[in-house]
């Protein structure tokens, strides 16, 4: 007989209350996680969408990509040695549309690479979020630092940097715009041998993301909230089962006296924890993914299946730990004491 299930059936309200709290906490966790991922994408999709590899900045730039300037001769030598190496630059700026409306963008240019959109001279490829601002293929954009015009020739998905849509421009236009021959960053894919020179500092994509102003602070605070919520949910289980176990300590003693194994009593609370968590998670996952589907396009919300699974597993582990720690009350339950006490 499944004692745990029988207790849930008999005390529905008590377990529904716990389930509701777990549902709300997990829903909040998924929502904040979606927001953290969304903001992260909004801040750094350009870098995050690159295949695993290594990014190099000029050593003297001390981790600030905007101060980095790769020597153009050195860059040419490297590119001549391997076509896997890509040099690219990012500059925050503005474009004016045909109605003189200004749009903040991150100008990106690169040497020939499959990982970056390529625009010809006088052309620009934009992140699709600018479509919502009314920009369409064929529109002519201008920039105060650039004498020529940029014709919109296409859009790419999820290409943002520092909360601004990326505008891919030709390397020649970039040089005209910023009056520089050299690019800022070198990128090599994972399979490419490392570039060893004292002039460059290597960064993993994750390390590079932390060089983006505000990225670390933004993610740190959101991740802290997520972990607090996870810990709170574990404590909720611990406290809830502790209170229940304290109330049932006499019953546990009697059950142990008649021969019930301590492990059977632990299984009872584990099953209850598992049932409540799975049902609560099923609701919160469904709701958060529905939100993911129907969230407004401009809202930085991005909840992936992997994040959902990871958080769900963490919730289950934390719930299990909370229930188990509170279950130590069961071990303490003394049959003799229970027998001598009144009705439990």
């Amino acid at each position: 007989m499944n004692l745990g299930w029988k207790e849930i059936k008999r005390n529905k309200i008590r377990f529904v209350i716990l389930g509701s709290i777990v549902f709300l906490v997990s829903l909040l966790t998924f929502m904040i996680s979606g927001l953290a991922n969304g903001l992260s994408q909004d801040n750094a999709a350009l870098i995050k969408n690159l295949p695993d590899g290594t990014l190099y900045l000029e050593a003297e730039a001390e981790g600030n990509y905007s101060f980095s300037s790769i020597d153009s001769e050195f860059q040419e030598d490297l590119l001549a040695m391997s076509d896997e190496v890509t040099a690219f630059s990012i500059q925050m700026g503005f474009v004016d549309d045909q109605d003189d409306k200004q749009h903040s963008v991150a100008f990106v240019t690169s040497t020939a690479s499959d990982d970056f959109a390529h625009a010809d001279h006088g052309e620009v490829i934009l992140d699709q979020s600018l479509k919502e601002d009314g920009i369409a293929v064929g529109d002519i954009l201008t920039n105060q630092q650039f004498d020529g015009e940029l014709e919109v020739v296409g859009f790419v998905e999820e290409s943002k940097f520092s909360h601004a849509p990326v505008a891919y421009i030709n390397i020649q236009d970039y040089q005209d715009m910023y009056r520089t021959e050299s690019l800022q960053i070198l990128y090599t894919p994972e399979e490419q041998a490392a570039i060893n020179t004292e002039h460059l500092q290597a960064y993993s994509p994750a390390e590079f993301l932390n060089t983006i102003p505000s990225y670390q602070a933004e993610q740190l605070s959101l991740n802290m909230i997520i972990w607090f919520l996870v810990v709170i949910s574990g404590m909720l289980f611990g406290i809830f089962f502790y209170m229940m176990n304290v109330q049932k300590i006499g019953l546990y003693g009697i059950l142990k006296a008649v021969g019930v194994k301590t492990s059977a009593l632990f299984k009872m609370i584990w099953l209850q924890m598992l049932l409540i968590t799975i049902i609560a998670l099923a609701f919160s996952i469904s709701l958060s993914h529905l939100f993911n589907l129907f969230a407004p396009a401009g809202m930085p919300f991005h909840l992936t299946a992997i994040t959902t699974i990871q958080l769900s597993v963490i919730f289950l582990i934390i719930g299990f730990a909370g229930a188990t720690i509170s279950g130590f009350q069961i071990k303490k339950a003394e049959p003799l004491q229970a027998i001598q006490q009144g009705e439990s």
């Binding site: 004692l3 029988k6 059936k9 006499g250 019953l251 059950l255 229970a338 439990s344």
Partner: peptide
């Protein structure tokens, strides 16, 4: 414990029934 469960029966001063089991379920349990 195994002997208590299979060979011994207990009646205490108070009934100490499992509150969330029906009469029939107490015996099945």
């Amino acid at each position: 414990r195994h002997i208590r469960a299979s060979q011994f029966g207990f009646v205490f001063q108070f009934a100490h029934l499992v509150p969330f089991l029906t009469v029939e379920e107490q015996l099945i349990f």
